[in-house]
Amino acid sequence: MSRGLRTRLPGSRTKAFKTAIGLFIGLVWFLPFVGVLIESIRPYEEVSNGWWRMDQLHLTLVSYVKIFSGTTLPMAGPLWNSFFSSVLGALFPILLGSMAAYAFARQWLPAKTVVIVIILCLMAIPAQMIAIPAFRRLYALGLLDTYTGVILMNTVTSLPWIMFFMMNVIRMQDVQIEEAGIIDGASDYRIFRSIVLPQCGPSLISAGLLQFVWSWNTFFWPLILIFNPKKMMVTQVIPMLRGQFYTDWGILTAGATLVMVVPIIVFLAFQRYYIQGSVGFAVDK
């Protein structure tokens, strides 16, 4: 055996070992989701002792039919409610946040550092710390039990991180292009819209995707702000499908599948942007 081969062997063996471990972790991490999916498409009698038992195997979509028509809360409504309020809950903070970020990055503002530090402190404040006064303020404004209230809270709670994220993005851009615009007589609004925003494209997509998914996933705000069953969001419906004494696991898993499929598709379709956003959202570059 040649010397080169002998020294290579242990390396390739550890590599095979690492591949095996990696694949095993991937499998373990994914299996619970497979369990949910399988339980949603098989009759409950077959899976009551474990979804992996295959002694009897029938596939059925009856749980999906039931979740759209057989429960007191048909799922189509909440899916639509969550969808459009998440789109708006992403667009508003992205727009308002990048406007403010541009001013923070490029313009003079009194006590700018203090304002930025305060915003940073609010970035990770627990939602519980603002819940009661915010609830009362929304009540005073007549915004309880409205989509506006939920969208507003999703916007406000995400503004600090989007402002900070976009501020860093804009700062890293070449200021000369903007200066060229100023020399050509463009207004600040024109520079923001035609130079700064287009240059931030990928970062805006990252932030928008993350914010859409977070708005979709948010549970605390809909839980305390929405009471009318017709206006409920998907995350509110899922816990309600669990009965106190009896739970129809077919319906519950079908509902869970529908609710998680949306963010998973967004994530898989735009994976690079999504992961970049998640890393960049708090990390030093």
Partner: peptide, 26 residues
């Protein structure tokens, strides 16, 4: 500049009334 005010006011007003003030009130 007036443009600065236009850029920062909406975000800062929202943050003030629905984040900063509620923290103090809590």
């Amino acid at each position: 500049k007036s443009s600065t005010l236009v850029f920062v006011t909406p975000a800062l007003v929202l943050v003030f009334f629905f984040l900063l003030l509620p923290v103090g009130q809590s």
